[in-house]
């Protein structure tokens, strides 16, 4: 376990050093993504300025929601950058490289790449959480702990969901379209108040498209402690993580090498 951690830390360090070779490009993407998210959030400022609240959710809840989702999404897709392109690695036979080395294949493949723009999402998430704290007028050490836990659960479910969907490539071949639609669906749903959706839709958001575990549930938990929500977050993260690892390795048995010569520099 310790050697795996040291290995992943070494990968992340290498990714960071690689990004720093193109410092201006990296910083442009980080700042650009923060601006991008901020402009999007203006919609909710305008919306709540006019309508005040929807089914019990107000602007402060949205700050918490964006805080958790952007931090979780940013950290997840920065640290495990290949989670968004796993299907193309599988389909094009690029898993050969990871299979030939004595390291956990999935972990190695996911952490081998970092997306610069995701660092912007992460920074924006922290700022949004800061704004949520200021506007809610409540802050203590426990809230910070809940925020860290909520973001970890968010990362676990998001990355697991992406791995699950793209693992289907082992069985059905090209899943680019499915991946694009699934990615759009989970990100979009996670950024809306869960109180908008009724029973059936809610069930969908806790199962087939687990956006509730990425956004609304951890965001509500961060705002106020609830033992049941804590259990749900931990269970959701654990179950999706287990499922994704199980399905990926089952699928890997069906993997066919591309026999392509690959050079990694």
């Amino acid at each position: 376990m310790g050697s795996h951690l040291a290995f992943v830390l070494a990968l992340w360090r290498t990714n960071l050093l690689s990004a720093m070779e193109y410092r201006v490009s990296f910083l442009t993407q980080v700042v650009g993504m923060m601006l991008n998210n901020a402009i999007y959030f203006v919609f909710w400022i305008i919306f709540f300025a006019r309508f005040e609240e929807i089914n019990g959710w107000d602007l402060v809840d949205m700050f918490f929601l964006f805080g958790v989702v952007a931090t979780g999404f940013g950290a997840g897709t920065y640290l495990f950058g290949n989670a968004v392109r796993l299907s193309s690695l599988i389909a094009s036979g690029q898993m050969d490289y990871y299979l030939s080395l004595p390291r956990p294949v999935l972990l190695h493949a996911l952490a081998s790449r970092s997306n610069a723009s995701s660092a912007g999402d992460f920074m924006y998430g922290l700022l949004s959480f800061g704004a949520a704290v200021i506007f809610s007028g409540t802050f203590n050490g426990l809230m910070l702990l809940r925020f860290a836990l909520g973001c970890l659960a968010s990362i676990a479910v998001l990355i697991s969901f992406l791995v699950l969907v793209q693992s289907l490539t082992f069985w059905i071949g090209n899943t680019n379209l499915l991946t694009t639609n699934a990615f759009n669906a989970i990100v979009t749903f996670s950024l809306y108040p869960i109180t908008l959706f009724d029973g059936t839709a809610k069930l969908l958001l806790f199962t087939l498209i687990p956006a509730a575990f990425i956004g609304a549930l951890p965001a509500e938990f961060v705002r106020r402690f609830d033992l049941l929500q804590l259990a749900q977050i931990c269970a959701g993260g654990g179950i999706f993580l287990f499922l994704s690892v199980f399905v990926f390795y089952r699928g890997l048995r069906r993997y066919e090498s591309g026999n392509a010569i690959q050079v990694r520099m």
């Binding site: 442009t28 993407q29 650009g32 601006l35 991008n36 203006v42 919609f43 305008i46």
Partner: peptide
């Protein structure tokens, strides 16, 4: 060197000031 940021921000201007997310009348 990097044009992605311009693209993202333009898309968000369309979403917000273009009226994709909400009619400008609101």
């Amino acid at each position: 060197e990097e044009t992605n940021a311009f693209r993202w921000i333009y898309q968000k201007f369309l979403l917000l000031l273009g009226g994709v997310l909400i009619p400008l009348d609101f």
